[in-house]
């Protein structure tokens, strides 16, 4: 027999087999439905599902005392002011951020320093009113203000949430590949800060899907 002939025969056999199998499986399906109904196949399915989930990894993150995570670098958290290469404050006190701020929470008072540059004498952000839209970062012509990844802000007094120029300068910057963001909250020493992944914590990783 030629090779082509062999192939033909094999294909024919395959088709026939699959057709008869389809008819068989249809009949089996019908019978199976009834048998399943009588023996509670649907309930058994449900039980199997929950049993499977029982051995899956929980998605719970034990925040804040056991685990913490570093958000993506695009996250809009705490504000901070940047310095240039000479260590001078970058801000030119143009007040564009204060203008664009939708909740009017930035207050800038300019002054002229000894080199004759316009700099902020006062730069206050009321984070109690801030809605963390990041428009100040977008509006800034001098690339002086940005929003980082720190998100633990809670305070008992709203006065503590007004942050001045020097505090803003002292804040940590954006962690590009997942540096540790200093947490303001008092935490235990063995708190795990999830920073091993360069792109932040993947919430979907632990969720089992079919």
């Amino acid at each position: 027999m030629h090779a082509a002939q062999k192939l033909w025969v094999r294909t024919c056999k395959k088709t026939l087999r699959s057709r008869s199998e389809a008819a068989m499986s249809h009949a089996l399906d019908k019978a199976g439905r009834w048998i399943g109904w009588a023996f509670f196949a649907d309930l058994a399915n449900g039980l199997a599902l929950t049993f499977g989930y029982m051995f899956s990894k929980p998605v719970t993150m034990q925040y804040p005392d056991k685990e913490k995570w570093l958000p993506y670098s695009r996250y809009r958290g705490h504000h901070f002011l940047k310095r240039d290469a000479e260590g001078e404050i970058k801000c030119v006190a143009c007040e564009l951020c204060a203008r664009i701020c939708p909740c009017d929470c930035i207050e800038v008072v300019p002054y002229e320093d000894e080199k004759g540059n316009r700099r902020p004498a006062k730069f206050e952000i009321d984070t109690a009113r801030c809605l963390f839209c990041g428009l100040c970062e977008d509006a800034c012509p001098a690339d002086a203000i940005a929003l980082g990844q720190q998100y633990e802000f809670s305070s008992f007094s709203s006065r503590d949430l007004v942050i001045g120029r020097d505090d803003l300068l002292a804040k940590p910057g954006k962690a590009m590949t997942g540096g540790v963001v200093a947490a303001r909250l008092k935490t235990e020493r063995d708190v795990l800060v999830e920073a091993s992944e360069p792109r932040g914590y993947n919430w979907w990783r632990n969720i089992r899907r079919k």
Binding site: Y53, M54, T60, Q62, I207
Partner: peptide, 13 residues
């Protein structure tokens, strides 16, 4: 505990 794990939680910890 069983309820927690079946719902991908941890239960009391």
């Amino acid at each position: 505990k069983i309820a927690g794990h079946m719902q991908q939680r941890m239960g009391p910890m």
